[in-house]
Simulated scan of single mutants.
Amino acid sequence: MSIKVLVVDDSALIREVLTRMLSRDGDIDVVGTATDPIDAREKIKQLNPDVVTLDIEMPNMNGLAFLEKLMRLRPTPVVMVSTLTKKGASETLLALELGAVDFVAKPSAEFAGGIDAFGAGLRDKIRAAAKSDVRGQASRVDAPKVAIRTAAAPDGALIAIGASTGGVEAIRTVLTNMPADCPPIVIAQHMPAGFTGRFAARLDELCALKVAEAEDRMPLLPGHAYVAPGDFHLRVERSSGQLKCRLGQDGLESGHRPSVDVLFTSVAKTVGAMAVGAILTGMGRDGARGLKLMREAGAYTVGQSQASALVYGMPRVAFEEGAVVEQAPIDQIAGRLANALNKVRPAA
């Protein structure tokens, strides 16, 4: 059964390009296009698409305003088509907070890897969106929030988190629940260059922690979280007795850069049993191998539960391969990590 897609964009050229790209492999069927949210509203009623692609800047109604109404009245998987600007990055993150599954950056003349790579990435995101549980997420009632009093641990302890599709909101949920006394947190979220800096800044606004985009050789400090920059692998190394960030642009790993596997593997090797790790929502298998290495090194590991994951791909593979000690709903993961940190013992 093909995936039915409605393309919403005020540019005739973009509508044509997206339609051609999405139709290429035969498993995605563009059942219609719309020029603005008013047009889209009628087409969604008529065509009942599985996934909608949505531009932000459109006449008659802003894409964000339309998205907010759509997710409230008729939850539907939406992939945003965003401009690669500071304003575009901020609006894209807001769209993800409002319930969009994922986003793609509009291709430009200097698009890395060219138009074919853009098309392949877009098709993958549409497939992930079609499998996502936006209706379940919209109806899910969070458990009452119990404040975590402390996540203190010995010097040298570390928290590692990896995610992909749906991860922006999942990571926000975990980090906003973590107290300011927690060990350093390192994060690999599949996200292109140009968006990770704004993502880190947004988390910094919302959390008790200090959140920043990771820089090469940046020391890892308690009460701080470090987001892998788009198009860079993030590794953890020990230098002069201190844990530090190391960035690299070596080849894609598990199809990604940043790769969760690369981050987790470095944590297993460098931090061992003094680490704790979480693998969150996302499509594919990135992170399972690295998380298993962490568990084998003595680290506590947790995977996001199926019921709370927007896309139960990466956590499912990690669970099936024995990489996680336990699975938990997203709103309980910070508590599980904090509890595990209380049991961490200093390295001999």
Rank of each mutant, 00 (worst) to 15 (best):
P49N: 12
R257G: 04
K43N: 04
A105N: 06
S2H: 00
L13T: 14
R20W: 03
G241H: 13
E91H: 10
K106W: 11
G119L: 03
A228E: 07
L93P: 06
G255V: 02
R20S: 14
V276K: 02
I161S: 01
G290Y: 00
H190T: 13
V52H: 03
Q306A: 10
V8G: 04
G287A: 07
R127Y: 03
G277R: 01
H233F: 02
L243S: 01
R238L: 10
G63A: 02
G255I: 00
A193V: 09
C207G: 04
F195A: 14
A307T: 13
D142F: 14
L67E: 09
V317F: 12
E68N: 12
A153S: 15
A130R: 06
P154W: 02
N177F: 03
G167T: 13
M1A: 12
A143W: 13
P179R: 14
Q46M: 15
T165C: 04
L252Q: 12
M71T: 10
G298W: 08
A180F: 02
N62R: 10
D102Q: 03
P154N: 03
I148H: 14
I187Y: 07
E97K: 08
K43Q: 15
L98M: 14
R316Q: 15
L158C: 06
V227A: 09
D25C: 11
R316P: 05
R289P: 00
T92C: 11
S2G: 01
M274N: 14
R295I: 10
V17P: 06
A40S: 09
D39H: 11
A268S: 13
L341S: 07
R149P: 00
F111R: 00
G335H: 15
K343H: 14
I115Y: 14
L84I: 01
P346V: 08
A307W: 00
K125W: 07
K131E: 14
D155L: 11
T165E: 13
G114I: 10
M80D: 08
E205Y: 02
A318H: 10
I56G: 07
L13V: 15
F103Q: 11
G113A: 07
V260R: 00
M283Q: 12
V236H: 05
K269W: 08
G166W: 01
M21D: 01
R198Y: 12
V79T: 07
V227D: 08
L243K: 04
P329N: 15
T53E: 06
A225D: 04
P346H: 05
G287P: 00
V174H: 12
A180V: 13
A12P: 05
G167I: 12
A201P: 06
E16I: 06
I330H: 02
V324R: 03
I148Q: 07
S305A: 15
I148W: 11
V17M: 14
D204F: 08
R238K: 15
D250H: 13
I161M: 05
V174E: 02
V17R: 04
V31C: 08
T165K: 05
T281I: 06
S305W: 04
I115V: 13
V134A: 07
V134P: 03
A188V: 14
V186G: 06
L122Q: 08
T196Y: 10
R345P: 00
S2E: 13
P154A: 10
I14R: 00
L96D: 08
A117M: 07
A288E: 00
